[in-house]
């Protein structure tokens, strides 16, 4: 790349591009979650009949993926750039490829392929079909047509585009390690991804793998679950869903500590899915009158 675009510029360009495509540009949702899909901007909004077009950057946490910043592209905290278009437009692949051009990836100069990769989130009772996008053999984006969320059929169908921002930045900037990504060139010098995140990544890895207090986390899980159910009883979707997310993150932490055996795992996933499903049902029950009146 002759004009190397920085990490923050990549995000700017994506925001700008999708804004021009008619998307709302939303801000990250403030509860820990494993992926952009789990934001209510996706999980809840993919349900129900209303059209919805948004794009947002989502910090995502996968405690088990932490590698103390040693692995070139595995992190316990990373970024997804998420686009949801509902109903899915027929030219979505074209829009996507143009967004790559916007961040400096000229499609005529690369081999861009859409290779089957279907997506399923057992904890959310959600699945979809789609592809991973290969850029000269590197997987840079996940493409999914949601078929179900919270066990409910999505009608109309949303399409989700999830960019791995770090992967793209490494590709564009020709870096072999995520920590070397240029976040920005400031007047006082180059700031890298490592400069910004190394310290917290290491702290979190120590916490996730070594320090997290198992009995307290187990207690938290129970507490969050109880609270979630309590809120569902009161028919308040959004706060209930936030507690569902807290359960999910707490479960991920327990998992990273190796505290959950495989059989228990299935049980925990089922408990979270039950919460997610109740939230989805509640959300949908509010939509029905809307549908009836139109």
């Amino acid at each position: 790349m002759s004009t190397e675009i920085t990490f923050q510029e990549i995000i700017f360009e994506l925001q700008h591009f999708w804004s021009k495509q008619g998307c709302l540009i939303l801000q990250p949702f403030d509860t820990e979650k494993g992926a952009g899909t789990m934001s209510p901007y996706t999980f809840l909004k993919a349900l129900g009949p209303e059209p919805w077009k948004v794009a947002y950057l989502e910090p995502s946490r996968r405690p088990t993926d932490g590698r103390f910043f040693e692995n070139p592209n595995r992190l316990q905290h990373y970024f997804q750039y998420q686009v949801i278009l509902k109903p899915s437009p027929l030219d979505v692949q074209d829009q996507y490829v143009k967004s790559l051009a916007a961040i400096g990836i000229d499609p005529s100069q690369h081999d861009i392929r859409f290779v089957e990769d279907n997506w399923e989130s057992p904890t959310l009772g959600a699945w979809g079909v789609g592809w991973e996008v290969w850029l000269d053999g590197m997987e840079v984006t996940q493409f999914t047509y949601f078929q179900q969320c919270g066990g409910v059929d999505c009608k109309p169908v949303s399409v989700e585009i999830t960019y791995g921002v770090e992967r793209l930045a490494m590709f564009i900037q020709n870096k072999d390690h995520v920590k070397d990504i240029v976040w920005q060139k400031t007047p006082s010098g180059v700031v890298t991804y490592g400069d910004v995140y190394q310290e917290s990544e290491l702290d979190h890895c120590h916490y996730n793998f070594e320090t997290a207090d198992l009995s307290r986390l187990l207690q938290l899980f129970e507490t969050y679950e109880t609270e979630c159910l309590h809120i569902i009883d009161q028919k308040l979707v959004y706060p209930a869903y936030e507690y569902c997310l807290k359960c999910s993150h707490t479960f991920n932490l327990l998992d990273a500590r190796g505290a959950i055996s495989v059989s228990e795992r299935a049980q925990y996933i089922l408990r979270i899915r039950t919460l997610a499903r109740k939230c989805a049902d509640l959300y949908l029950s509010r939509r029905e009158p809307v549908e009836a009146s139109t």
Binding site: N71, P72, N73, S108, D111, I112, D136, G137, M138, D176
Partner: peptide, 28 residues
């Protein structure tokens, strides 16, 4: 590697990209 979008201009870039990806996988 059997690529799908090869021209005289991009051939070297595509090959280099694929080699890098493989190198990362092999390192893993």
């Amino acid at each position: 590697v059997v690529a799908d979008n090869v021209t005289d201009q991009n051939q070297a870039t595509i090959l280099k990209g694929n080699e890098r990806v493989l190198a990362a996988r092999l390192a893993d």
